[in-house]
Design a protein around this nucleic acid. Structure first.
Lengths: 365, 365
DNA sequence: GCTTTACATGCAAACGATTGCAGTGTCCAC
DNA sequence: GTGGACACTGCAATCGTTTGCATGTAAAGC
């Protein structure tokens, strides 16, 4: 590894003092230096391939040009595009991202924040906050810039980039109503997350606005955004005995679970029950059936979050104003939604018993 | 942001010199200090919540405890588990990962390596190398520790963690042969990558060993590991007019493309043609049909690569021996493979023309 | 022509850790 | 009682930057 060239080397080459070189190299202070000398310094630093030493820089300035990105699990397909967006935007500004996975565990979360903090990150992008988040409270006390992406906390003073969940839910329901559905079930996500909460609230209010049958028993809450919960909730809906012709799911993975559960009961999607997802994660178009869902701009969200954060970092702490950005969404109609077919409506049991829906199996008939 | 506590603060609190504190805090030098004093120092540092300043540490020691992870695109589903493995293993050792995406572009790759280098990473994990890789050559000149994961370069002096491609291909072919297939096509991956190359070579040699019909025209090379190439290659295979009953693909995405292409021609998988993938990326079990594939231990590979790298970093440069690890693989049989059905063999055209296979549509018959 | 002003540059002190070396004190041996 | 060995701790230099202040010089003002 060839010896790194330092300011001193450049200074020596040009025949000036290191401080002069330092000033000439920083665009903000370059005006202090005679243009002709500055020019010679620039040339020399180029020629010698000078690279400032990041450690020395941070030691002196207390800025690392590094930001932490905290996600629950990078393995969850909705996060990579977000992370990619963050990194690309960061790179444009000369910043770097350090990635950390919490697995959604509070203990791990705290430990990670600790390490990231003493590592001296300049700010944090959080993709995993709950509506009331302990980690956020702690970071707030440290006065370190943060912005949440995808989800938000219920405080106005924390910057965020989210998607228009209300509009997304409106589009989903409008689409189903257009197809002729009136009895629509909802598998709502965990209410401790802003996404779960807002989609649920939007479902209720839009359903009312559209004049669709309201029924408490057609809403069931998942305890996590995963396939297993989708299956469990669907089973619960079917066992509930209340007829429905469509299931609106709070995210794609719940929807995938729902379709699997329907299939287990001998019900076909969309023939017997239409199903919608939310997020438009990759590969959805290759599923069977391809999933109708809401597309959100994940990459864009990540990029904007990063820009917002850098803005906050480079601004004086006193006039930092947390901004909130809401990105538009789009309905993607695929094969998992179709008009209800009254003749084959599996979810409208004739009997009344809890297991009514199960015993009925139109696909086998 | 409360003022950070430094060595000096701890020293003051205990009434000793900073150097004493420094030594007491480092397990390697702790024996130099009177146990009783060391104890008081430990307690005080705990009480004051002392965290060493990473910048000062690196400035002095030239070690950042940070390693760079270079992948083509984190959005590609095979990488997240690898990255996760790297990060978890790294965290255990007190190291951090900085992630960078190259998009497979050589220019971007070089720029990224540059930035990572002056950032002072202690080593690099490369998940995107070609068999003859310019970036690797450059890094070699810098004498910075590197290990490649998933793919390898054709040099013995670069540490690597890969999977047993030969055995994987053997299992795939044995499975197909067991089912009764004798005319098996191969969509080989790009030969500039070790994975593409080795799987192709293994295909050829295992096919010969099993005594299956060899036919040059049943092998076609994809220019990338993606769905589009899978479609294109399958079309080429079908247009070639040489009959076959199964397609072995060099990775899952090629297989997904292959199945789509078959469907476009009115052929069903596995009824008309069996298809196999490679890698077992997520969601494959939810596809239609669920894909038979080779499962590789991605997380494990990432973790081992990280361990290997840290080992190299902490060893004196002179006796660093690049190690090569080959991880076992496993066959996962799902729904995309079935015994050949001679009656409905779409890929056995009666005519001879280039488009023969196309005109024939058993699914419609 | 001498002071004033402005500008360009050098000086030196940080930032917070690590580490070779020197110093102090204790103990033991001769 | 003196010398040496040993164990501990302090001193001070150092890593590569940034930046307030001092210094030097040239242009400008009277």
């Amino acid at each position: 590894m060839r010896k790194r060239v330092t300011l001193k080397d450049v200074a020596q080459a040009v025949g000036v003092h290191v401080s002069t070189v330092s000033r000439a190299l920083d665009p903000k202070t370059r005006h202090l230096i005679t243009p002709e000398i500055a020019d010679r310094i620039l040339k020399a630093s180029e020629r010698l391939d000078y690279r400032p030493n990041a450690a020395a820089y941070s030691l002196k300035t207390k800025r690392t040009r590094t930001i932490g990105v905290i996600v629950p699990d990078i393995t969850n397909p909705i996060f990579p595009p977000i992370i990619r967006g963050v990194e690309d935007a960061l790179a444009d500004q000369g910043y770097f991202a350090i990635l950390a996975n919490t697995d959604g565990k509070a203990g791990r979360e705290a430990a990670i924040a600790d390490t990231l903090l003493w590592r001296g990150v300049d700010g944090l992008v959080l993709a995993s906050v709950e509506r009331h988040d302990r980690l956020v409270e702690r970071l707030l006390a440290e006065a370190i810039p943060i912005v949440t992406v995808n989800r938000r906390v219920e405080r106005e003073d924390i910057a965020s980039v989210v998607h228009d969940d209300r509009d997304g839910m409106r589009r989903v329901l409008a689409h189903l109503a257009d197809l002729g559905h009136t009895r629509i079930a909802n598998i709502a996500g965990p209410q401790s997350f802003s996404t779960g909460r807002e989609r649920y609230e939007a479902f209720e209010s839009v359903r009312a606005a559209l004049g669709l049958d309201p029924d408490r028993r057609l809403v069931v809450f998942a305890s996590g955004f995963n396939e297993d919960e989708g299956e469990r909730c669907t089973a619960e809906l079917l066992d509930g005995g209340v007829p429905f012709t469509a299931i609106v799911c709070s995210n794609d993975r719940l929807a995938i679970g729902a379709i699997a559960a329907l299939r287990q009961r001998g019900l076909a999607c969309p023939d017997d029950v239409s199903v919608t997802g939310y997020n438009d994660m990759p590969m959805l178009d290759r599923l069977f059936p391809p999933l109708t869902t809401i597309r959100i701009e994940q990459y864009q969200a990540g990029a904007m979050a990063a820009e917002l954060l850098v803005e906050m970092i480079e601004e004086a702490p006193e006039h930092r104003k947390p901004r909130h950005i809401v990105l538009p969404v789009e309905l993607v109609v695929r094969g998992s939604t179709a008009p209800p077919s009254p003749a084959r409506n599996a979810a409208r049991p004739k009997g009344r018993g809890r297991k009514a829906a199960v015993s009925e199996n139109p696909a086998a008939g």
